[in-house]
Design a protein around this nucleic acid. Structure first.
Lengths: 223, 223
DNA sequence: CAAACAATCAATTAATCTCTTGAATCAAGG
DNA sequence: CCTTGATTCAAGAGATTAATTGATTGTTTG
């Protein structure tokens, strides 16, 4: 198993971890875990996998030290083992996006002119927040919002957007965020808001990246 | 091909890139290319691959946009397509490194109870050394050993371990060390030695920590 | 134009993953 | 202690990937 050459052994370790990331299902599980810790059943149903299959993927991730598990009563709760993983996934996204032409096409065709929806960076958002110049909306579902969100954000899941438009200011910049750079929700929210004449923009990345950057977060106080 | 769900399609792309990284050979090629651009033949010989095999790996990397190639006369020169790759590889190795130690421990605990692999602290090692009660082995490769090692240590890289067992005493405690708490080498050496009936233990940390603590070191005098 | 190189292609075998299925644990509640 | 619910384990069919071998395509040089 272990090669005689330590350098090769190191590459072998790196490759093993990369292979652990080399499955769309596992990446999806990691993204779900980047938001909050979850049980196997929850992960399976969110990702559309069977329980057994999800469990096996999770064990594989655990074998390579990417996630940790602990038991709570009947269920086993998984979580990311290392916040650095968010960085790794981000880098993977960036490399993929920058280099795979097909990916760009997929993105563009789905998100119609992405450039028009120019995103706001974390830094920029922080500046605007300090000046009170911005209304921040979180387009993720309630449970995820409750588990943690950006300070001062309003939870406005996509489905509720249309009937809660009156809660939003017409004169102020609105910034929407969700799970990360590839999360669809905030794109759609911004598109919808702009169509209605609001001044809206996306946050460049999402809640997991925000938290990973060590910026402050809030939690809702409902069990 | 692309599912109706763009999110899934995105994960599929990310996974494909991760899989492209999921091979020790390809990672080694990328590392070589991170230094400078190179021809196929050069890469093959540096990495110990056959030309055909190296070529195939390189094409795979190219298919996923990680490297670019252009022809110069008879030869085809490859280079990294994106400087961001260095960031990605860095993140990968940080995540791996943080977890390799833990993984090894888990693996080892399958075979022997953890307590048996209890590491020896620097202080403890110093006491045993003063009493001449210990044989100290350095499991790092020759070059690293030559650059500096603990006083009195024998250089015994993992690959040579099996055929040099006779150099080791059966009656005396053996302590193995390598690069630090996350270095795999000494774990494997200790596991191997114990399997063969030697009394072996790991040093809690490695050469860098020893030197950083201001303790005495030796250097080999061969160029 | 033929010979010599450098790299790629094509095809085969061996090895590794993936998903599914059904049985086996393990904890909590009656 | 038996049942239920949640998860893991074990085994097998099907698909993917890796390394090897030998032939093939371009490029330069005599």
């Amino acid at each position: 198993m272990s090669s005689q050459n330590p350098k090769r052994a190191m590459f072998e370790h790196l490759a093993a971890v990369a292979r652990a990331l080399g499955s769309a299902h596992r990446l999806e599980l990691l993204e779900l875990l980047a938001q909050t810790e979850r049980s196997v059943e929850e992960l399976a149903s969110l990702s559309g996998l069977t329980i057994a299959n999800a469990s096996q993927h999770l064990q594989q991730l655990r074998r390579f030290g990417l996630v940790e598990a602990h038991r709570e009563g009947k269920r086993v709760i998984y979580r990311l083992a290392d916040p650095e993983l968010v960085v790794l996934l981000g880098a993977l996204s960036r490399v993929t996006q920058r280099n795979v032409g097909a990916v760009e096409k997929v993105l563009n065709s789905y998100f119609r002119e992405r450039d028009n929806l120019e995103p706001v960076s974390r830094k920029e958002l922080l500046r605007r927040m300090r000046n009170g110049l911005v209304t921040l909306i979180d387009t993720r579902p309630n449970e995820e919002f409750a588990a943690g969100h950006l300070p001062g954000a309003i939870n406005l899941p996509l489905g509720e957007l249309k009937r809660r438009l009156r809660e939003l200011p017409r004169d102020q910049q609105i910034v929407a965020y969700c799970r990360g750079p590839y999360c669809v929700l905030s794109y759609e929210a911004v598109a919808e808001l702009r169509k209605r004449g609001f001044k809206a923009a996306r946050l460049e990345d999402g809640y997991p990246e925000w938290r990973a950057a060590g910026l402050p977060v809030e939690q809702s106080a409902n069990p």
